[in-house]
């Protein structure tokens, strides 16, 4: 039963760039129907690579899944080209707010509906319902709206595709805290009200753990932890390295020395 309600299963995949650089070394992740799952980890851990492996965009960067498999709704998709994967309803929102600069906000949204070009009016209304700011800015070139609005624009653009699974890469990157809060609330509503399953990559661990009931922690191309958010919030490693909740200069132990080394590696 628990097995059956997983819509996405990443089974022990290995990913290489340019046929030599091994970046993912056996990653397994599952996303349940209607759920939000967070994928956490420091810069360079391989989070974006994982998302690209699912969406097929790896091919565009000369990356390849060299081992393992990815199943979506019971079908193996890891050999399919990106266009075929989008046709099955998986859409990745690439990190870095990549709007189409020379199109207006509304035109950006329309391109999102490329694969489903009917019923555009209603869908635009839905997007504007969640992002009223986009309605105000709809005739402005997307290259000229604020960073927060660009992030809303790329999320709205993916909504236009009626995704069956949304892969969301670091939506909080470089945004002001209040704006991040606003966007995360909307992400949560999208999941609850529109029933869009989301695989969320984040470095803002605190927020990610509040919106996602389940999370994976990735380090150096491997999943090193995988638990419910409740448990992860209590986990001393997470508290220490991601949430900054333990007081520095307290008792020292071997574990902390190990952590310290790891942290140094993360910061490098």
């Amino acid at each position: 039963m628990a097995e059956n309600n997983k819509i996405l299963k990443i089974n022990n995949i290995e990913v290489r760039y340019h046929e030599v650089i091994l970046v993912l070394k056996g990653v397994s992740i599952e996303v349940p129907e209607g759920g939000i799952v967070a994928l956490l980890g420091a810069n360079g851990a391989g989070k974006s690579t994982t998302l690209k492996a699912v969406s097929g965009l790896l091919g565009h960067e000369d990356g390849d899944i060299t081992d393992g498999s990815i199943e979506f709704l019971g079908e193996k998709i890891h050999r399919l080209p990106a266009e075929q994967i989008s046709k099955r309803g998986i859409f990745q929102i690439i990190e870095g707010r990549r709007v189409f600069d020379h199109l207006t906000v509304e035109e950006n949204l329309l391109v999102g509906a490329h694969l489903r070009p009917s019923g555009l009016k209603e869908r635009l209304e839905t997007v504007y319902h969640y992002f009223p700011r986009l309605r105000e800015r709809r005739t402005v070139m997307a290259g000229f709206v604020s960073g927060g609005e660009q992030q809303m624009c790329v999320i709205g653009r993916a909504m236009m595709a009626l995704p069956k699974l949304m892969l969301l890469d670091e939506p909080s990157m470089g945004l002001a805290p209040l704006l991040i809060k606003e966007i995360f609330e909307i992400i949560q509503r999208l999941n609850r009200e529109e029933r869009i399953p989301i695989l969320l990559v984040e470095q803002n661990v605190k927020l990610a753990l509040t919106v996602a009931p389940h999370a994976y922690v990735m380090e150096n191309g491997r999943i090193v932890m995988d638990d419910t958010s409740e448990k992860l919030k209590e986990n001393p490693d997470i508290r220490d390295f991601y949430l900054g909740l333990t007081d520095v200069g307290g008792r020292k132990s071997f574990r902390e020395v190990k952590h310290y080394k790891r942290r140094k590696r993360w910061l490098a």
Partner: peptide, 16 residues
Amino acid sequence: QACADDEMAALSLGVS
């Protein structure tokens, strides 16, 4: 036009 602006982003939306 989208593809001319950002090919990868266009690809992510299913534009061939």
